[in-house]
Simulated assay, not measured.
Amino acid sequence: MEKTNVETLYEWLDQTTELIQHHVNEPYLESLSYTMEIVFSQEVPVDIDESLSTKLKQALDELTIDAYSSEEKRKANQLAIIKGMTGSTQQQHLMTPETVSLMIGYLAGKLLSDKTDPVRVFDPAGGTGNLITAVLNQLVQEKEAFASEVDSTLIQLAVWNANLQKINIEFFHQDSLRPFLLDPVDLVVADLPVGYYPDDLRANEFKLKANEGHSYAHHLFIEQSLNYTIAGGYLLFVVPEFLFDSDQSDQLQQFIHEHAHMVGVLRLPDTAFKSEKHQKSILILQKKGHHTHSPKQPLLVKMPSFTNTNAMGDILGQINNWFQTYKKELSSNE
């Protein structure tokens, strides 16, 4: 079978990364970042071993990067990053599944379909930049994009990922629960980090801080995201299935009720995740404003397996119908 462009580019990235890894004895993800930098600059740095330099120049001559679309570059990068993360013991080195990223991009397009001005998008848990670039590639409007990531390896990969796709994203290399120099945005997308936030002093600044012990990072991320969203703006979160069943969930539900409208919850298929304990949903919120209203009927969906094309077609038809009703409600309330 003939290889797809994504497969061809992935193989090039993988082979070149392994070549670098063999010579410099660095982990795969760090070597991949180096590969992406070379592809973007289209030149090999002068300060490297002559033998490696010759091989890299030869590899570059074999690659015509402009022949690939942004989505092909993103998917090839994603495959290489997944390979580097395989077997990783670090929870933050896990990527949002491709089908989930595309679903969030689809929902973002529906939510912002009436907006003609440039759209401001922010991912406070940016990781390798795969989720935000997947969303940006699906939005038809002009975009301003921002992402934050504390992990130095992941943010390096995110920067080169965006550069290779020629997507302009302003990155913040910081703890995402600290203040940002950022004006409020129209849309927040995030695959929320799940677990406890270790900085109790900083957590004390949040309304969703725990009464005792460490606060939940995923709760604080929701509050932080609402702080940087305009009134009437939307938030799309990948959340753990147990979000509203935990010991601090009453506090979270009350906070969301005060500050946002619950637009919908899409329970993702079991097949999208390794095990039941990793099961997740997509939570859709709208930040409250003077002219905003809760939908008469929130979008509540249990997604079928993404490989079941008939069932997916039926569900997407129902979601499209729901959005038509929701948009009519919004326009009649203006």
Rank of each mutant, 00 (worst) to 15 (best):
M1I: 06
K3Y: 01
N5G: 15
E7F: 05
T8C: 06
L9R: 03
Y10M: 08
Y10Q: 11
T17D: 00
H23Q: 01
V24D: 00
V24A: 01
Y28K: 01
L29G: 04
E30I: 13
Y34A: 03
T35K: 05
S41A: 12
S41I: 12
Q42V: 01
E43T: 10
V44M: 02
P45C: 07
D49Y: 04
D49M: 00
D49T: 02
T54P: 02
K57E: 15
K57W: 06
K57S: 11
Q58K: 14
A59I: 07
E62Y: 08
L63W: 08
T64P: 09
A67T: 15
E72A: 13
R74A: 02
K75C: 05
K75V: 12
N77I: 15
A80K: 03
I81L: 08
I81H: 02
G84T: 10
T86I: 05
G87E: 09
S88M: 06
Q91G: 06
Q92A: 13
H93P: 09
T99N: 04
L102C: 00
M103W: 10
D114M: 10
T116C: 04
D117V: 07
R120C: 10
R120T: 15
V121M: 08
F122T: 07
T128K: 02
I132G: 06
A134I: 01
L136Y: 00
L136Q: 02
Q138Y: 07
L139T: 08
K143F: 03
K143I: 14
A147T: 03
S152M: 01
A158T: 07
N161V: 08
L177C: 00
L181V: 13
L182C: 00
D191F: 02
D191Q: 04
P193C: 01
V194E: 04
Y197I: 02
D200R: 10
L201E: 14
L201G: 09
N204W: 01
K207H: 12
L208G: 07
N211I: 01
G213I: 00
H214G: 07
H218T: 11
F221A: 05
I222R: 09
Q224I: 03
Q224F: 01
Y228S: 08
Y228C: 11
T229R: 11
G233P: 14
Y234G: 11
Y234E: 13
L235C: 15
V238A: 05
P240G: 07
D245L: 12
S246Y: 13
D247V: 12
Q248W: 11
Q251F: 10
F255L: 09
I256V: 15
I256R: 10
A260S: 15
M262Q: 13
M262A: 10
L268P: 12
D270E: 14
D270W: 12
S275M: 10
S281T: 10
I282V: 15
L285A: 12
Q286F: 12
Q286N: 14
K287M: 11
G289C: 09
H291M: 11
P295H: 04
P295Q: 08
Q297N: 11
Q297S: 10
L300P: 09
V301E: 08
M303K: 07
P304F: 03
F306H: 06
T307K: 09
M312G: 00
M312I: 04
I315D: 02
Y326W: 14
E329R: 08
S332L: 02
